[in-house]
Structures are given as C-alpha cells and as structure tokens.
Design a protein around this nucleic acid. Structure first.
Length: 879
RNA sequence: GCCCCGAUGGCGGAAUCGGUAGACGCACUGGACUCAAAAUCCAGCGCCGCAAGGCGUGCCAGUUCGACUCUGGCUCGGGGCACCA
C-alpha cells in the first residue's frame, strides 16, 4: 500500500474500474426496490460552476448511499441545451449556437466524469437534439387541438433601437442592455399554455407532497394565489354611456366586498378598453396611457414605481347605492390580474389611500376595528391616519352596519346577485404561461400559418420541425425570420403556400418533462413507454436542485406531468405528481467586488484578483486590486455568477486536490439547504482530513491489520470506543437517509477517527475493534469520497469493493450502558453533573439530585419550589 | 412593492421534539520534531474577570421551571417575481 494519500494516482484507477464494470448502469429490475435519484440538469454554459458541483455531489451521495442500502438506483444526467447564452456567445464569437453548445457539453461531461459521479450516461438527454424536442412538438400539437395551447396577444419588452424583443434580464434600469434605449411595452401574438385550467389541482396536490420543504410549497401556494371574493359590476352612468360606446358595466374583482360601501372611485389599467376609449378623445390622457407603456414588463418594476393616475371623464354607478363614481386610469392596476380594473376603497386599502390623498379623491370609512369601534371610527376618518386594512365591523354602511367580515361578505354578495350585478367567485393570481420566444436557439413551435385555414398544427408525419443548426446569429431578431428555406412551406390542410411559425418555445418547456424521458431516452416511436411504470412508480424518489427554481421550473414540471397524464402517456402508471421528495440546495455565494467604469457601468472583479484589507480584529474593511494596488468597492455576498464575476472555478481545485477533497469540502462546509459561502482555506482542511484518514489506515495495516471481531470481553475504554462507533453508524445513517444533513455526518466520522487515533492500545482486541471502526468509517464516508473509500477498503479487506458492501449496521449490544450522566440545573442554570444508573426511576433521580453537593449548597436547607426531571437529560431544581 | 428564507465565537457551522450553547472544521497562539522550512503531532482558543462568578445565539417585548429553538413587533442580508436558467 502507498504510504501517502495521492488522489491523482488513485482516482483514475478507480474511475476506470467503474467504467469497465458499468457500475452506474441502471436496468429495470422488478425484483428490487428502485431509487430514482434526479438532479436538475445543467445549462451547458461552458464549464461547471460550484453550484453544479454541489448539486451533483449531493445527488451522488444519496445515490451511492441508497445503493448500499439495497436499492436499484438510477442517476441520469442531461443538458438543458437551448437558451439565450448560446445566442449571446454566437454574436460575440461568431460561432453557431449549436457548435458552442456541443463543445460545452463535451467539456462539462468530462468534468462530471472527473468528479466520479455514478451517472448512467447511457440515458443522457440533450434537449436541443430533434430526437428529444420532437416529442415536445408532438405533445404541443395535441394540446393545441385540445385548446390547452392557444394564441393571443401578450406584452413584451421592446427595444425601439435594436428593433428586438428583450428578456427581462436584458432590461437594465428600464433600458436595453445593448442599445441603452428606453424600453417600451409592445403587444404581440403569442402562444399560451392553459396552466390556469390546472390551477386548482396544482394547488390541491401540494398537500400530497410530504417530501417537499414547507417553504417551497408555501411559495407555490402563494404564487397560484387562490383568493375568494366577489365580482362586482359598476353600471355605466347615463351621462357616460354615449362616450363609452353603449350600455354596460365595468367589472371588477374584490376580495373585500365588505368594504364596497366605502368605494369612492374605480380604477382601470392603462391597457383596459375603457382607457383606450377615453384616450381617443383626450390628448392628455393619451399621453398618460403612452407613458404607462414606457418601461419593461417585469412585475418588480411595476410594483415599485410611483403610483400615478388620471381621470377618464367617465362615470359609473355604485351597484348598491347608485352613487356616481369617477373612473380613473391608474398605473398600479395590472391588466393581467382579475378584470384589469379595481374598485377603490381608500379608507381600507393602503394603495388606494395613498392614491386618493395624492389626487384629492374621497375617503369614506366603512370598517371599524372590532375592539373599540368608536375610537377606530374617528381615527380612520382622519385623512392623516393610515388606512385600516384589517377585518372589522361595518359602519357607515346603511343596512350592513354592525356586520362582521363574513356576514357582510355574504349579505353584499347576495344583494349584488339579486340585482345581477355580481357574484361570489375565486380568483387566481396564476396566469397562463406564455411560451413564445422571438429567438432562434429554441424548440421550433410546430404551427403553420395559412391565409385560409389559420393556424394549423404540424401533422405527426412532418415532425420534428428541425431547427437548422448551421446559422449565423448577428443579434437583431431571430435568423429564422430571414430563412425562407425554413419558413416557406405549404398548408397541411389545403396545400396552399403558407408560412411556418418562426418563434421558438420557452426553454422551460424542455425542462418540464426531461425527467420522464430519462426512463426511455432511446425510444424513437413514442414520447414515453412502459418503463416509466417502474422508475416513476410513487414519483421520482429524490429531486435535487437550486432553491431559485422553487416556483417556476417546479410548477411547470408539475403542470406538464398532469398534462401528460391526461394525454394518456403513462400507461398503467398512476402519477399525479412527478417529485416525491425534493431537496432544494442553497446557493453557492461569494463576495463581489467592483469598480465603476467611465461610462457608469459596473466592472465586476474576480475575487482572486483582489486583496482584502482587514483591521486588527480580522474584519474586512477595504479591498484593493492586486494588479494596481488601488481600492475596489466591496459589493454584497451574492450567488456565484458570470454577471458578478465572482465564481470560483472547481476545475482548479480538482486539479490541485482531486475530486474527493472537493466533494468532501462542499458537503462539509454547510448544510445542503443553506447558502454556502466559499472559503479556499476550508478546502485545505478537507484535504488534510483525507491525508489523516489515509495515514490512520496505513498505520493500522503496517501493524499487521486484523479481523474485525466484535466478540469477547472488552476493556472499559474499548467498550466505550465501540459504543461511540455504533452511535456514529446510527447517526450517519439517519443523517444520510432521513435528515439529508451531510455536514454533521462528516463531523461525526471525524470525531470517531479522532477517538480512534487516540486509542493507545496495541492488544489483539484493540486491533480487532480498530479494524471494525476503520471498515465502518470508510463505508460511512464512501458515498462522499468514493475513490478514497474504494482504495482503502480494498487494503483493509483485500479483493473487496466498498461500493458493493451494505451500509454498516448498528449493533444494539454495543450501545448498552450501565450508567448515564445527567445535567443538574438550579433555576435553569448549569450547576453540576450527576452520575446515575441507566435504569434509575424518576424518584431515585430526584433523591440523588437533592442530595448532591451543589443542590445542598443552593437550597440551604429549604425545600425546592419545584423539581423538574427530564429522563435521560437533566434535573432542574427551582428555588 | 409582494411572496419565501436566513442571522449563533475571528470564520464556516453544531445543538434532530423547548432541556449542557459553541460539536466538527478553518484561522490564530504556544510547544514537540527539524540545521531550517514544509508536512505532521500535542495543547490552548466566545466575551468580561486574578478569581469566585457574571454576560452571551441580529434588536425589542412575551410564553415557560427552562428559549438559538415557540409567539408578536422590528433591523439587516439573500432568493423569487412569470422572457436568465
């Protein structure tokens, strides 16, 4: 055996053995329980970043642990290969997106192999290949026929200089990232997926997801945002009917019908038909509506901008009182939610309140806080007091006075219904999913536009619609729109010349079903086959990925699973939810450094090029660039990203320390669900631990090794060490299997090895116990550091493979103990320790506690006020 | 702005169901080995205090015999907000 740990000599050996034996190859085996271990597949951006390493290490640890537990494990991998960065790279480097993408995949695949992940590469999926996306196009045409895909106008960011649609990410402070021109909203036709048809099921099924973090379920619940309220119609006032263009009513949705008597105006979105109608005759209003079209479509921007409005000059009547109310256009009303119009109750809504104050609109108090109604009444009527938005009791509301929220809701809804001016209903915040992208590098939308037949889905026999790969991307719109050989076609229905759709699909579509295709990536005749009944029974056992995907990707995947179920693609499998257990890893973050460039843009500096200046207490106070010694600004600690230039390249670490050290450090540095702040120093510590582990095993073997033999009488010291060993096995198994807390599992094994190294006993019995401990320690660490695990285990047990072993079992006999230690508290403060027999009854423990020296000292002869005994833990004497 | 999460020594973190705060590791300090360095090993390491002891888990309240843990109210940091993936 080598005396020193040398990762670079052992890792290739172990990896080529795995490769030869096909160790990671997964085959359906109905006789064994399966464990489908899925990671969020990477976007092939160039090289792996730390987030990838973290994600796939977690998955690999779980995969290897479950294999040791007897599961038939499948761990597949693929590439989320369509997306914007390929087009940007294409513009920058004059390389076709396909070529760039495939080169990145090759490089990153080699990196994943270098890290020793037990991935079944025979199932590899690349979403930009026609054998994958053809099925997506196929299902699209089915959904189109069912009405689950439809076309309508949608709003996009428009760069008026570059004449192109921008992603939200490409809009910086309201301007196009390349042109710098102020961005405008523009309405264009787009395809939508009717996710709202599944809103109730997506909401209700969250309850089935016991294996998901509560946090993620809550975020999804709020995103779907089902609220109960009332539709209310405000009939047009007689004087406005003519200018509005006919009789009718303005419909709004409210969750607070109990405040209806306090409505003093109605506000509509700038895109609302009523706003357009009013603007036609009013140049000032037209200017305001135009102003509302400035800026991007991102909701965060909409919600933080200054609230502005303008009267339309139209009036509606209050549906119950008949009072005349003005109609305003307001930039805070979203066309995409509810009816694009709201009733405003300034006294009981903070936003309406601020708006009413600004424009001198009436504020009418109609809800009083339940406690002290009189006081609250006078408070809220005073306009300098904030709006009272909580539930309360109706006042100043005629026949509804005195009713609470629920009663007033029912009474008002009933009265509205009786007049045909409203009814109760639920409203979702969730909107239909716009999937059209005016970009080249995506899955072509399989539709043909015919002048006579309209939008015709591409028939099955003409699928896939293949995206041409050898193109030049120059920016300024999709090259597909300049390729007649792509868009010129004939109508499948009437045979007349027609035009192929040149928009591509949102890349979220590919990532919404890849996990099902892993079960049958080789099937050229169908999207899915019966193999999913084996691998997806009960759902995918474990899904691992970044918390940043908590809403969109996971919601779309849940949606697509339901779509595919309802399309009858699952055969005998009953599957409503794709992911039985979800682990959302925290982000890998690092400090950022920057300088402002002359043009005002930020120049982000790689942390490795920066020296941090600390004060005498070790706190960072300043930073300077190594190259010029001049100060740089310290930014926040943010997710490692290209845009912030704060990434640490895992490859450099692998080259220096080997895969096991990188895997060990990343699992040890922080719990998986928390963000991981990068530290170069910590990596060194992980490397040191592996060297130490190697040496302990080397020394044990040099002294002749031993057979692990737990029989026979042991000295108290060995007995105690062996108890620690089996406690550690129990803890580590629980940490891996149930808690998914790997940092504490590693710490426990470190403690065990510290104790093992301290064990100063050369007896036969000690060597046997040490052998048992080292074997167990290697098997416990194997999922995390498999190369070291394989190599050292084969030294301890020649000819055997660690990966083929079962996970160590706890020996209950080793855990038994005669005496335990209890903590003695007096008034909740630690005052001593008690040794009591493990079997001692509460009364006996009380007696021992009270007679202890510390208790005598504090009690001073007086009896205790209270005595609390927590079995196995502590005794608290209350004076 | 809205939704979600987090905050514990010089640093990353531990304390799993309300019961010993600081496991394990990093950094640092001292010692051993060495001509020397590296590597390795041993010891120390929350703050105040000579000590006894006191204080201490972002801040302010509360519940409890007992709170890092539960409740209410803040502050700061992070993620998401529908065209980044």
């Amino acid at each position: 055996m080598q005396e020193k740990y040398d990762p670079h000599s052992i890792e290739p050996v172990v990896q080529s053995r795995w490769e030869k034996t096909g160790a990671a190859r997964a085959t359906e085996d109905p006789g064994r329980p399966k464990y489908y271990c899925l990671s969020m597949f990477p976007y092939p951006s160039g090289k792996l970043h730390m987030g990838h390493v973290r994600n796939y290490t977690i998955a690999d640890v779980l995969a290897r642990f479950h294999a040791m537990r007897g599961f038939n494990v499948m761990q597949p991998m693929g590439w989320d290969a369509f997306g914007m960065p390929a087009e940007n790279a294409a513009i920058q480097n004059r390389v076709p997106p396909a070529q760039w993408t495939y080169a990145n995949i090759d490089y990153m695949k080699a990196q994943l192999k270098r890290l020793g992940f037990a991935i079944d590469w025979s199932r590899e999926i690349t979403t930009c290949k026609p054998d994958y996306y053809r099925w997506e196009q196929w299902l699209f045409t089915r959904l189109f026929e069912k009405g689950l895909v439809y076309k309508r106008y949608g709003t996009v960011n428009w760069d008026p200089v570059d004449q192109t649609v921008l992603a939200n990410e490409q809009v910086i402070d309201g301007r196009g990232w390349r042109s710098g021109a102020p961005v405008e909203k523009r309405e264009i036709p787009m395809y939508y997926m009717r996710i709202t048809a599944y809103a109730d099921e997506l909401l209700g099924d969250l309850e089935k997801l016991d294996g998901w973090p509560e946090q993620v379920k809550l975020m999804q619940k709020n995103w779907i945002g089902k609220s109960f309220g009332c539709e209310v119609c405000f009939p047009y006032e007689a004087e406005s009917v003519e200018s509005i263009g006919g009789e009718g009513a303005l419909k709004v949705f409210t969750t607070r019908p109990d405040t209806l008597m306090g409505a003093t105006y109605v506000a509509v979105a700038a895109e609302h038909p009523l706003a357009s109608r009013a603007a036609a005759a009013n140049p000032a209003l037209r200017g305001f509506v135009e102003e509302c079209k400035r800026g991007g479509v991102a909701e965060a921007d909409m919600a933080t901008m200054e609230k502005k409005g303008m009267p339309t000059g139209f009036y509606v009547s209050h549906p119950l009182s008949g009072e005349k109310l003005p109609v305003w256009v307001a930039n805070y009303v979203l066309m995409g939610y509810g009816e694009g119009a709201v009733m405003a109750v300034p006294a009981h809504d903070e936003r309406d309140f601020a708006f009413a104050l600004k424009y001198g609109l009436d504020i009418r108090m109609v809800i009083a806080s339940p406690e002290g109604a009189e006081g609250a009444y006078s408070e809220v009527t005073a306009p300098w007091m904030p709006a009272y938005a909580d539930y309360g009791v109706c006042v100043n509301s005629g026949k509804y006075d005195g009713l609470g929220f629920a009663e007033a809701f029912d009474a008002i809804a009933a009265d509205l219904a009786a007049r045909g001016l409203g009814e109760k209903r639920a409203q979702f915040r969730l909107r239909d999913w716009g999937i059209s992208r005016q970009r080249y590098w995506g899955c072509p939308i399989p539709v043909i536009h015919c002048e006579d037949c309209g939008d015709v889905p591409v028939p099955d026999e003409q699928l896939p619609v293949v995206l041409p790969e050898n193109v030049e991307v120059t920016g300024g719109g999709s090259p597909l729109t300049r390729m007649p050989e792509f868009y010129e076609c004939v109508c499948p229905k009437c045979g007349k010349p027609a035009r192929r759709e040149t928009d591509t699909m949102d890349t979220f579509v590919e990532s919404s079903w890849y996990f099902l295709r892993y079960c049958c990536p080789d099937n050229t005749r169908a999207m899915l086959d019966e193999r999913i009944a084996y691998w997806c029974d009960g759902g995918i056992d474990q899904y691992i990925g970044g918390i940043e995907h908590a809403i969109l990707h996971l919601l779309y995947s849940r949606f697509w699973t339901k779509l595919m179920r309802d399309a009858g693609l699952f055969g005998s499998l009953r599957l409503d939810e794709p992911f039985a257990r979800l682990l959302t890893q925290g982000m890998v973050v690092a400090p950022t450094f920057c300088r402002e460039k002359p043009d005002g843009k930020m120049d982000w500096i790689d942390p490795s090029e920066v020296e941090i200046v600390c004060d005498e207490r070790g706190r960072p106070v300043a930073a300077k660039l190594l190259a010029d010694g001049q100060p740089v600004q310290i930014g926040g600690i943010e997710k490692m990203s290209k845009s912030r230039n704060n990434g640490v390249d895992p490859q450099a670490l692998i080259d220096k320390y080997g895969a096991d050290t990188v895997r060990l450090f990343i699992m040890f540095a922080s719990p998986v669900d928390q963000s991981l702040e990068w530290s170069d120093a910590g990596v060194e510590g992980a490397y040191r631990f592996l060297k130490r582990l190697w040496r302990i095993v080397y020394e044990h073997i040099s002294k002749g090794g031993a057979r692990a033999d737990s029989g026979g009488e042991l000295s108290p010291e060995l007995k105690s060490f062996r108890r620690q060993l089996h406690q550690t096995i129990g803890k580590v198994a629980d940490d891996y299997g149930r808690r998914k807390q790997f940092n504490t599992a590693i710490a426990a094994v470190m403690e065990l090895l510290n104790a093992c190294a301290r064990l100063d006993d050369a007896s036969e019995a000690a060597r046997a116990v040490r052998q048992e401990a080292l074997e167990a320690a290697l098997l416990m660490l194997y999922p995390i550091v498999p190369h070291v695990g394989e190599t050292l285990f084969a030294e301890l047990r020649p000819g055997e493979s660690a990966g083929a072993q079962s996970f160590p079992e706890v020996d209950a006999v080793a855990l038994a103990r005669d005496e335990i230690e209890l903590i003695l508290q007096i008034d909740g403060k630690l005052r001593g320790r008690l040794r009591v027999p493990a079997s001692a009854e509460t009364s006996a423990i009380e007696e021992i506690a009270l007679s202890s020296e510390a208790a005598q000292r504090y009690l001073n002869g007086k009896p205790p006020r209270k005595l609390v005994v927590v079995p196995g833990r502590l005794v608290n004497i209350v004076l």
